[in-house]
Design a protein around this nucleic acid. Structure first.
Length: 202
DNA sequence: ATCGTTACGGTTGAA
DNA sequence: GGTTCAACCGTAACG
């Protein structure tokens, strides 16, 4: 593909008379030469002129070599693995908009194809974990002070065991009402009551 | 004269 | 087969 670019006349000439392809890494033999010359004690400015490569590029390749020991360029392109597809992420945010107080595990149930609602889009094997869902929610609503306040109020956490005397399923969740103000949920405002909860951080 | 840094215009490739 | 988009590219220019 590199050869093709040159064939198609994509090769350009820099100020020093050197040939390069815009947006593409320098070929390996030149990168190697840069490192070899530097190892022989040749100064970067001389390498730049001799190989007709911009000094900024010589600097970058030499610095990367010192840091990583590799001649190679960085990994170009691709995308990071997604925990949830954009479709599913959109659905999660939609549920949250409909009902801001909804628990992540409730969203998870609703996403599931099987179950009472039969409206989900996920198989059991592809449904995001509860913590993934709450992370999606956190990052989809990065309202300026959200990060600074993280953990101080209304943060959703995983809960095992009993909540308010009612045994919840393993992996359930609860809203920590740290400020004692209560929270809107299904039209009602929950008022802080004396509860004992056992929280296990995984 | 040298070299660290970065805006710019560009390409790539997994999702 | 096409689109999205955050990763990386080298050059040119500034300090």
């Amino acid at each position: 593909m590199e050869q093709e670019a040159l064939m198609k006349g994509q090769g350009r000439v820099n100020q020093l008379g050197g040939v390069f392809i815009n947006g593409r890494p320098l070929p390996n033999h030149i990168r190697l030469k840069i490192v070899e010359l530097a190892a022989q004690g040749v100064r970067p400015c001389v390498i730049s002129r001799q190989l007709r490569v911009s000094h900024g590029c010589v600097s970058k390749i030499l610095q990367r070599y010192q840091e990583t020991g590799s001649i190679r360029p960085g990994v170009i392109g691709g995308s990071k693995p997604r925990v949830a597809t954009p479709d599913v992420e959109g659905r999660i945010e939609e549920y949250k908009r409909e009902n801001p107080g909804v628990f992540s595990w409730e969203i998870r149930d609703r996403l599931l194809k099987v179950g009472p609602l039969h409206e989900g889009v996920c198989e059991r094997s592809t449904v995001p974990s509860v913590s993934s869902i709450s992370r999606v929610l956190r990052s989809s609503r990065p309202s300026s002070d959200q990060q600074a306040r993280s953990g101080s109020d209304g943060e959703e956490v995983s809960v095992d065991g009993e909540v308010d005397g009612v045994t919840r399923g393993v992996g359930g969740s609860a809203i920590l009402d740290v400020d004692g103000m209560g929270h809107e949920r299904e039209g009602k405002t929950t008022t802080p009551t004396k509860v004992t909860i056992h929280i296990f951080f995984h």
